[in-house]
């Protein structure tokens, strides 16, 4: 496959996943800051959200009453912010346009539809109606695109690059969310986190053998079956990576596979006690560094800026 095509698929997929996750996080955070407990903590809450998606803005300088709307606008409509919902959708759509020939028309139409609806929403209409319906719309369509991709694109190299982008971004963002969590966090805090990962219902089925926070962390980090856990998502990335290079699972043929294999081994055999002893912050921090290194390795192998000439 052409490197340009693979790169566009990777970024299209990552940006769609990011838009979806961001829409969910914003929705959960917006609703929780509406009640009494939440509104007192609006500033730290919004700062935490900005931290998850790696955005930086000076919320402290803003009047408390303006914090929510400023943060929301920054994360939703800001064009300067390369990771706002609007920016993510634009990037995804632009990349989809570059590889239109590789996508089914259903996928293209869904992405283009999302783009058109996001472009036509105005900050004013959201200020009037509240952000929830807009955020849910983005979340639903972005999520639907994932399903349309699975159902209408041959599960070959094109699909594997899309799959890799989607699950890498998911693992990356879940890990980011866990990194911001306070070990002594209240149960409300953990519940919010679960909601942001749409994990409340699956989590309810997990046996109650540990402390609440430990259980949430273990679930979101290590659960082998929950599709938003870091471990599960990275398993999917690993599978696609091996199909692309046609290498047997458990072995590696390039640096990306080796890095990911090592990280997965840690997650596969980690116990939650070890992680909390070490500290969740340092653990997820190291995992985040490994993920950064992994994405650089993927780019270097599959779409290098400077090719290796024989």
């Amino acid at each position: 496959m052409l490197s340009r095509v693979a790169e566009s698929l990777w970024w299209m997929s990552r940006n769609l996943e990011r838009a979806e996750t961001l829409a969910r996080i914003l929705d959960v955070n917006y609703t929780r800051t509406m009640d009494r407990y939440g509104s007192e903590h609006a500033l730290p809450h919004w700062n935490a959200v900005l931290g998850i998606v790696g955005m930086q803005t000076q919320l402290e300088l803003i009047a408390p009453s303006e914090v929510a709307s400023t943060a929301l606008h920054y994360c939703t409509f800001s064009s300067e912010n390369r990771t706002s919902i609007v920016s993510c959708v634009r990037i995804a759509r632009q990349n989809a346009l570059y590889v239109r020939g590789e996508l089914s028309s259903e996928v293209w139409e869904a992405i283009n539809g999302l783009y058109l609806s996001v472009e036509s929403s105005s900050p004013r209409s959201i200020a009037r109606d509240g952000p929830s319906s807009f955020l849910r719309h983005v979340r639903d369509i972005a999520q639907a695109v994932g399903g349309i991709i699975d159902a209408t694109i041959s599960h070959d190299e094109v699909w594997d690059f899309l799959q890799m982008g989607r699950f890498f971004e998911r693992a990356y963002l879940t890990n980011r969310m866990l990194r911001g969590i306070d070990p002594s966090a209240s149960s409300i805090e953990s519940q919010t986190l679960l909601q942001m990962c749409c994990a409340s219902e699956p989590f309810a089925k997990v046996p109650h053998a540990m402390s609440e926070t430990d259980r949430v962390v273990a679930f979101l980090l290590l659960d082998p079956a929950f599709p938003r856990s870091v471990r599960f998502a990275l398993r999917e990335v690993d599978a696609s990576l091996h199909r692309i290079s046609q290498t047997a699972g458990g072995t590696y043929s390039n640096e990306a596979e080796r890095m990911l294999g090592r990280l997965l081994a840690i997650l596969d055999f980690a116990q939650i006690g070890e992680i909390t002893n070490e500290g969740l912050g340092p653990f997820t921090g190291r995992a985040g560094d490994r993920l950064d290194a992994f994405s650089i390795a993927v780019e270097r192998i599959y779409f290098p800026r400077i090719p290796v000439a024989s």
């Binding site: 496959m1 052409l2 490197s3 693979a6 190299e157 599959y302 779409f303 090719p307 290796v308 000439a309």
Partner: peptide, 8 residues
């Protein structure tokens, strides 16, 4: 050459 995911 073309730049591909398998090299040039």
């Amino acid at each position: 050459y073309m730049r591909t995911t398998r090299g040039l």
